[in-house]
Design a protein around this nucleic acid. Structure first.
Lengths: 148, 148
DNA sequence: AGTGAAAAATCGGGCTG
DNA sequence: CAGCCCGATTTTTCACT
């Protein structure tokens, strides 16, 4: 966990977060480095765990998930294995974080429609009281750190 | 756009979401396609807007953001421009969705520490009542659609 | 789906502060 | 001594058939 990143490292992170598939030589060009130096930097960022991977961004609506929802789950007790099992089975659950406060978990759920969403929420409601909010629009789609 | 994806398309999406930087020839190998056929498929997925881009995943803690929080913002009225301006300035706000229900917006905020988080929340509280939950752990870090 | 030219990734070695 | 640059070899990409 090297927290010592210079301006060049940040520039590299910005470029790779914007376009994770740019050739390393092109990356070097953009941050004013030779191809091998850029490669070296990227390798180091990967090795130290700063860059954890690369992913294609997929449009949810385009693959049939018309509905996105935020579900807050109040989860009494401390038996968390059943929830983990559900997360493994239900691939419609895209994200799940454990948080402070009254709601123990906040989840992001993708569904093909309201009926489908209802099914997933039913499964979640087995564990505790589920509070669901439908997403109108992604005002700011996820951006990584350091990006404007 | 094109909601007609066959099993091969899904396999391609799964591979590219897991590792967005694999060579197309390697991708073809994994989904039992020739390099050119795989390339063709990927190009089509990009052109039809299914794949919207590629991004490096960056570990927030590793770049100095030790604290992650979910902020729910109750936003009275309908003047949304000031919020958009704040989103543009505060790069610590990583994500923002507009939702149904009492809370108008749900935001994801990364901060270097509690003091930093307080600053960001103060800015947000200018707009309405802000309800903040600190993230203990990412039970399920974001995964794209179709991934197990 | 195969082919060949262009481009990029990889590796080794040498240079500078 | 870490970080960068250069050039040769292997691999991938791209336009065309």
């Amino acid at each position: 966990m090297a927290g010592n990143l210079d301006a060049t490292d940040w520039a590299i992170l910005a470029e790779l977060q914007r376009d994770g598939r740019i050739p390393l030589t092109e990356l070097g060009r953009r941050v004013s480095l030779s191809a091998s130096a850029a490669t070296e930097r990227v390798k180091r960022l990967e090795a130290t765990g700063v860059i954890t991977g690369y992913a294609a961004r997929v449009d949810l609506a385009a693959v049939g998930y018309a509905v996105l929802a935020i579900v807050r789950l109040k989860y009494p007790g401390s038996r968390h294995e059943p929830l983990h099992r559900l997360l493994a089975e239900r691939t419609e659950i895209l994200e799940c974080v454990r948080v402070t406060g009254d709601d123990c978990y906040v989840l992001k759920v993708a569904a093909t429609g309201m009926h489908h969403l209802e099914e997933v929420v039913n499964d979640l409601a087995e564990f505790g009281s589920a509070n669901t909010n439908i997403v109108y629009s992604q005002t700011l789609p996820y951006r990584g750190p350091g990006l404007r």
